[in-house]
Deep mutational scan, measured.
Amino acid sequence: AQEYRALYDYTAQNPDELDLSAGDILEVILEGEDGWWTVERNGQRGFVPGSYLEKL
């Protein structure tokens, strides 16, 4: 798994998404072809927009 940093804040719109704060460090589990990536942070897993992340 790769570590990424959130570039922007994101507020989850659905229960299966995660909130992001700019600067958060996340582990990317799966890069979805639809642009939604499965990530894990502090034991929580959910979808976030891949375009909001940069690889560390």
Score class of each variant (00 low, 15 high):
Leu30Lys: 14
Tyr10Met: 02
Asp16Arg: 14
Thr11Arg: 10
Gly23Asn: 07
Gly23Ser: 02
Glu17Thr: 03
Ala22Leu: 06
Lys55Asp: 06
Gln2Val: 13
Ala1Ser: 15
Trp37Gln: 04
Glu31Tyr: 10
Leu7Pro: 01
Arg41Phe: 15
Arg45Cys: 05
Leu18His: 02
Ser51Glu: 13
Gln13Trp: 03
Asn14Tyr: 09
Val28Gln: 04
Leu18Gln: 03
Tyr8Asn: 11
Ala1Val: 09
Leu7Ser: 07
Tyr10Cys: 02
Leu20Ile: 06
Leu20Val: 12
Ala22Asp: 03
Asp19Ile: 01
Tyr4Lys: 02
Val48Arg: 00
Ser21Asp: 12
Glu27Phe: 15
Glu33Asp: 12
Glu27Gly: 08
Ile25Pro: 05
Tyr10Thr: 02
Asp9Leu: 01
Ala12Asn: 01
Thr11Gln: 12
Leu7Asn: 07
Gly46Tyr: 06
Val39Asn: 00
Ser51Phe: 07
Glu27Ala: 13
Gln2Gly: 10
Gln44Asp: 11
Trp37His: 06
Thr11Ala: 13
Gln13Met: 11
Trp36Tyr: 13
Gly50Asp: 04
Asn42Asp: 14
Ala1Thr: 12
Glu54Gly: 07
Glu27Cys: 14
Glu40Asn: 15
Gly32Glu: 07
Ile25Phe: 07
Val48Thr: 03
Arg5Leu: 08
Val28Met: 06
Pro15Trp: 05
Ile25Cys: 11
Asp16Phe: 15
Ala12Glu: 00
Asp9His: 06
Ile25His: 15
Gly43Val: 02
Asn14Ala: 10
Gln2Leu: 12
Val28Lys: 08
Lys55Tyr: 05
Thr11Gly: 08
Leu7Ala: 06
Leu20Asn: 00
Gly23Leu: 01
Thr38Gly: 08
Arg5Thr: 10
Ala12Trp: 00
Tyr4Cys: 05
Glu54Ala: 07
Asp9Glu: 07
Glu31Gly: 05
Ser51Ala: 14
Ala6Lys: 00
Lys55Glu: 12
Pro15Ile: 12
Gly46Gln: 00
Pro49Ile: 06
Trp36Ser: 08
Ala22Thr: 13
Gly23Asp: 07
Gln2Ser: 11
Arg41Gln: 08
Thr38Gln: 13
Val39Ile: 05
Ile29Met: 10
Glu33Gln: 14
Glu54Asp: 05
Asn42Ala: 13
